[in-house]
Simulated scan of single mutants.
Amino acid sequence: MPKSMPRIVVHPPAPTGGRRVHIDAEILGVAYNVADLLEFLRRAGLDPDEVRLNDPMIDWRGGGPDVWSLPPN
């Protein structure tokens, strides 16, 4: 049976900036941009050159890959 793809969750931006990222149940850290996210995924064993930001394995919450901070009030 093939190994299932990991579930990556990118949480909504925090009030202080950045987005918490976890893969399956493991918290990877807070990413402040796409480069941070790709580095976390690389450290988790994924090839960043193979990651597509629109892949359904990435659950973007509170905005897509172009949202890294809350809008100004």
Rank of each mutant, 00 (worst) to 15 (best):
M1N: 05
M1Y: 08
P2R: 06
K3F: 01
M5H: 00
M5V: 01
P6N: 02
R7Y: 00
R7M: 04
V10N: 04
V10H: 04
H11W: 14
H11G: 03
H11V: 04
P12Y: 02
P12Q: 06
P12N: 04
A14M: 12
A14I: 00
A14E: 12
A14S: 12
A14Y: 03
T16H: 11
G17K: 09
G17F: 12
G17A: 11
G18E: 08
G18L: 09
R19L: 10
R19I: 13
R20E: 15
V21M: 07
V21H: 04
H22D: 13
H22F: 02
I23Y: 00
D24H: 08
D24L: 06
D24S: 09
D24N: 15
A25H: 14
A25Y: 13
A25S: 15
E26N: 11
E26Q: 14
I27H: 14
L28S: 07
L28C: 15
L28W: 06
G29H: 07
V30G: 03
A31V: 06
A31F: 06
Y32N: 14
Y32V: 08
Y32R: 14
Y32D: 10
Y32C: 09
V34E: 15
V34K: 12
V34N: 08
V34H: 06
V34P: 06
A35I: 14
A35V: 15
A35P: 03
D36F: 07
D36C: 13
D36T: 10
D36Q: 11
L37D: 05
L38T: 08
E39G: 09
F40I: 01
F40C: 02
L41H: 02
L41N: 02
A44I: 05
A44N: 06
A44L: 03
A44S: 13
G45W: 02
G45T: 05
P48L: 07
P48I: 10
P48C: 11
D49Y: 07
D49I: 01
D49Q: 13
E50Y: 05
E50T: 14
V51Y: 05
V51H: 07
N54L: 13
D55Q: 09
P56T: 10
M57W: 00
I58F: 04
D59I: 08
D59Y: 01
W60D: 03
W60Y: 02
R61I: 08
G62H: 04
G62Q: 05
G64V: 12
G64Y: 09
D66S: 14
V67R: 12
W68D: 12
S69D: 10
S69R: 14
L70I: 06
L70K: 03
P71G: 04
P71A: 07
P71L: 03
P72W: 01
P72R: 12
